[in-house]
Every structure is written in structure tokens, then in C-alpha cells.
Design a protein around this nucleic acid. Structure first.
Lengths: 252, 252
DNA sequence: CGCTCCCTTGAGCACGGTCAAGAAGGGTGG
DNA sequence: CCACCCTTCTTGACCGTGCTCAAGGGAGCG
């Protein structure tokens, strides 16, 4: 069953255009210009560092396939994942205007990236204000997601926290057109999930079992299925407004 | 001793210009244009809602005085503060491109706001690309702060978490030119501080006492003094890179 | 076949939450 | 000016969520 293959666009610029059309009004003219961008494709294995704190990159990248995360490390050697990025997302778009990276980017799963030079971004932003706005908006949505994560980590217990995270991942993968229904192929370790929700790997394991025990999710290998989507949404208090998608109904 | 008074700029546009000059290159010409903006001043008492989740504002505001926060509420009725904003900050600048508010804004202390219409922002952004970039950069810095907060709340213990938060507040107030040395006048309740760092009010109290006991801070009334700034920075693992100020030395 | 990484489970513990009650401060009205 | 009230701070006691440490099992890979 090569379902995912048929879902994948032929050109990397299509991934970008789909993303922007999900969050802003992009004319066919603008889309054509985006289609002409130079995007250098690059495969990455899982768990590979892409960019490190302190770097001063001259490129940004778009996720074409797989899952990428941004993370920070504390003095005690602990890791906090601050966001996930799926197909279409531009994890370090902020690098255009923030010269020094304040976090790390790494691949969580095997994936494909599209590398775009900052200068390319800057010139299309100058020429096409609508596109510039869409990019700005994209970074604002990232910020909205960070806000939600602060709330998730700060004020929800393990059960709700994990449920919320799964909801977000599933919905974002749906927006990206990478999954049908509520079944996601997420080859992410429980330790990584713990680093994202601020829990230990052991407790993530127990929490996922609790979610399974309540019939909300089912896992088999790396596949995650939301058996009871409304139940999962409720458990995680998940309200997708913060994702600011133009057509939020896609999420359900 | 009216120290704070003499630190305060005469015009609200000066607060904006100072802010932007702290994070971007703003020519005198651009500054002059910013000085001509229509900013309607508005006093707010402490603990007043400014904007609520779901609102669709047509204005943004700049903090001229006092401290403002953004917050979210969970289903369990708990509050998480997702960021603080001090003089010069533009808390809901994202409202320009994100029509629906995904969080609340409220004043933490008595303060003064400057209201600016979205249309005014949009037109200055069109006419002055440098200014547009500075505004974009401002929202990117907000996002960087959110990332740091996720890390703070997710992976640091109460002691380090509180220390980090105090460091950030002090440094940002210094950048804003609102305090000298490391003494801040912060009429913020311990409950509010707890909502920001994801702790209960009781535990914030005990943690602050621990910080005092270790000689890192001293409090008298609403005044907070960092007795041992290097010690506080170390306790909070505070690295101000994520604030992306042009002249980070001001922080020390 | 053996190594490594990840998942799983158990046991004990500690950090921080909750509940409750008293003290202190600040504002308001008589 | 004082009395009162309300909010905030403070402290104690208990408890529970989630962490740590440790060990075994399973799956993938060289």
C-alpha cells in the first residue's frame, strides 16, 4: 500500500505553495513565481542535526518529507523540543531576519529538505508583497504554536499533554496532506515525545498506555491511529484555532 | 526619588523608535516617519483585560509603561501566562496578519498603552521596507522568547525556572531603559509569576525565599533587586542570546 | 549471532501541588 | 484617623504526579 506516495507532490515548490495556500491568499501569479524558485533538495536520515545554536546560516529550508524538530538544551544536559515541523513547514524561516540561531534543528525521522537561499527569499519578498505577508504569517503561526506549547507544558497533566500533542501532530499532518483519516506514521521515539511534552520517557510510555487503555489511540509499530478522535480531542483540550489554517474543517 | 520619571520618553513614538533601534537598523529618515504615526495613548489599571481569545481587533498596541502579559486558559480553569511585555513591546503585533486572537492580553500592572491602527502599520510597512523588516523581526524575537519559555517550563526545576524568569524580566526592562542596575519595580503577584513559570503560587513563594536565602535576590515591597547578578544568571542558566538585541552588553 | 536501541515494567522517592489557616499589607468608607 | 475588608503573602502538613534507577524483553541491523 503506497498511499503516502500518491499523496506526495511531484515538485518541491508544490509543497511550498500548498503550505502558503493553506494559510494565505496566493494568486496563480504568485504561485507561478514560487514555482520558479531554486530549491535544492537534500535527503536526511533520522536524528541528524541540521542547524545548531549559534550558527549563522545563509539558507533556510522547507520540510518536504519527514518530521523535523527545534530543540534547546539546558545546563543539566536535558533536551526540550520546542516544536515539530512537518511537510511544508519552514522551520528556520526566522533565520532571514535573526542572524544567530537560538535553537537547534534536527530531523526526527528520515526526510527530505528543500534548501532555499536567504537572498532568494528576500528578493521574492521585495517583488511580491503578498508572498512576503504569507511568509511573515507563517512565522506568526509558528509563534502561536509555541504559545500553545508553553500552555501545554506548563499547565496540563501528562495525560492531557500527550493527548494534545498527538492531536496537533495528526492535524498538522492532515493539513500538510500527508495522512488520511487519523492514522499517522510517526517513527518518533517515546523519549523524543517526552522531550517535547516535558516528561520522562518512562512516563510517556505509561501515558500512551493509558491513552490506549481508554480506547483513544492504537499503536502498531510506528503507526499511530486515533481510534476515538473526539475523545482524544477532549482529553487534550485540543482547539485548533491556534494553528490559524484558512480551512480548519480539514482537521476533522 | 523620581528616577523612573526621568527615564521616561516624552513622546510615545520615542518608545517605539527606541525599541526598533534596539533590534534593527533604523535610519533617521525612518525614525522621522515613525515619529509621525498616530498613536492614541490610553491608561490601563492593573489586571485589566485588553484583548480576549477570539477577538478580531483592528488595532495593535504598544506598551508605553507597565507590564502586559499574554495568557491562555485550560479547560481545568488554570491560567498559563505565555509571555510578558514591557515598554516598547508590541504584544499583539501578530494581529496584523493573524485575524483571530489565540490568546488573551491583560495588564499586570498599571500602565499606558499606545493604540495604532492596523491600517497605519500596513501602510508604513508598504512605504518603508526597513521598518517592515524591523516589525517582522520584532515578532520573530517574541517567538524566540516563547521557545525559551517552553524550555524553561518543560525542563528546568522550580529554582532555575524562577531565576531564569527574573533574569529575563530584569534584562528586558534594562533594554527598555526602564531600570538602572538590577533593581526592578515589579508589582506582580506571586500567583501571576506562578502562572508564567507553571508553578503554584505557594511554591513560587517558597522558591523566591530560597533565592533570597541564597543571597541572589532581595525584595522589599514590589521592588526586586538582584543582589548577586552573576549568581542569578547561573542559577537560571540565563543566556540572553535568544532576546536578539543588537547590543547585548546592555544586559550586564 | 550478537549488538544496540527502544520499549516495558517495577519499586522507591522527591518535587511540587493542594488544602487550610493565619499574618501582613493596602485601599475604602465611616 | 481608624476600622474594616480584601487581596496577597506566608507557613505547615499531607499527598500525588511524575522522576529516577534498574533490569528484562523485543526488534532491527551489521
Amino acid at each position: 500500500m503506497e498511499v503516502t506516495k500518491s499523496l506526495r507532490p511531484a515538485f518541491s515548490s508544490d509543497v511550498l505553495i500548498r503550505k502558503l495556500r493553506g494559510i494565505a491568499d496566493i494568486s496563480d501569479d504568485d504561485a507561478a513565481a514560487l514555482g520558479g524558485l531554486t530549491i535544492q533538495e537534500k535527503d536526511v536520515p533520522a536524528n541528524r542535526d541540521i542547524l545548531l545554536e549559534g550558527d549563522r546560516p545563509t539558507n533556510s529550508f522547507i520540510v518536504l518529507d519527514g518530521v523535523v524538530c527545534s530543540s534547546k538544551h539546558t545546563g543539566a544536559g536535558k533536551r526540550q523540543i520546542t516544536s515539530f515541523f512537518v511537510a511544508g513547514d519552514l522551520p528556520d524561516l526566522h533565520g532571514i531576519h535573526l542572524s544567530v540561531m537560538d535553537c537547534n534543528f534536527s530531523s526526527m525521522t528520515p526526510g527530505r529538505l528543500g534548501v532555499i537561499r536567504h537572498s532568494v527569499f528576500r528578493s521574492i519578498c521585495e517583488q511580491r508583497p503578498r508572498v512576503a505577508t504569507a511568509f511573515w504569517r507563517s512565522t506568526l503561526i509558528d509563534a502561536a504554536i509555541y504559545r500553545e506549547w508553553v500552555t501545554n507544558v506548563g499547565r496540563r497533566d501528562a495525560y492531557a499533554r500527550a493527548a494534545h500533542m498527538l492531536c496537533e501532530l495528526i492535524v498538522r499532518l492532515r493539513f500538510a496532506g500527508r495522512i488520511e483519516d487519523h492514522v499517522a506514521d510517526l517513527p518518533i521515539t517515546q523519549a523524543a515525545l517526552g522531550d517535547a511534552v516535558g516528561l520522562s520517557a518512562v512516563h510517556v510510555n505509561r501515558t500512551l498506555q493509558a491513552l490506549q487503555g481508554d480506547g483513544l489511540i492504537a499503536t502498531s509499530g510506528t503507526k499511530l491511529r486515533a481510534l476515538d478522535w473526539p475523545g482524544l480531542v477532549q482529553a487534550g483540550e485540543f482547539v485548533p484555532t491556534y494553528l490559524h489554517q484558512k480551512d480548519p474543517d480539514v482537521a476533522f
